[in-house]
């Protein structure tokens, strides 16, 4: 558990510096947050900010975007969370079964 840095971590550090250099190069193309005319603020977000209250009746624009304009995304996302629950249940909670792969020997005693 005690963590020690070795020769291998030097190589990893160099790799991280390379990633940081790539990010720094692409950072120079990013708009600073002081600019108002970036494409993030202009294209579709303009309609969300101006029309959300009159079209959906909800003053909270985040809820309007999440549940009205992009509700299909949210539906699939709810399904994703449900899938996570099903996977967790299938991998841990079902354990007294035949041919149970990762149970070891103790599980086979109970069903005999």
């Amino acid at each position: 558990m005690k963590h020690t840095f070795s020769k291998r971590s030097l190589f990893y550090g160099g790799l991280c510096l390379a990633v940081l250099a790539i990010m720094a190069y692409s950072m120079s193309f990013l708009p600073s947050y002081t600019e108002m005319d970036t494409p993030v603020h202009r294209n579709v977000a303009e309609r969300y900010m101006t029309q959300a209250e009159s079209e959906t009746g909800s003053p909270n624009m985040v809820t309007a975007v999440l549940a009205d304009y992009r509700s299909l995304d949210t539906m699939i996302e709810t399904t994703v969370i449900f899938t996570a629950g099903v996977v967790t249940y299938a991998m841990i909670a079902i354990r007294r079964r035949k041919n149970y792969i990762w149970g070891g020997d103790e599980d086979h005693e109970t069903e005999a």
């Binding site: 909800s58 809820t63 309007a64 549940a67 009205d68 539906m75």
Partner: peptide, 13 residues
């Protein structure tokens, strides 16, 4: 009609 949007949002939430 605008209030129907509110009820729809409430149902899905």
């Amino acid at each position: 009609e605008v209030e129907r949007h509110l009820y729809g949002i409430l149902f899905i939430e």
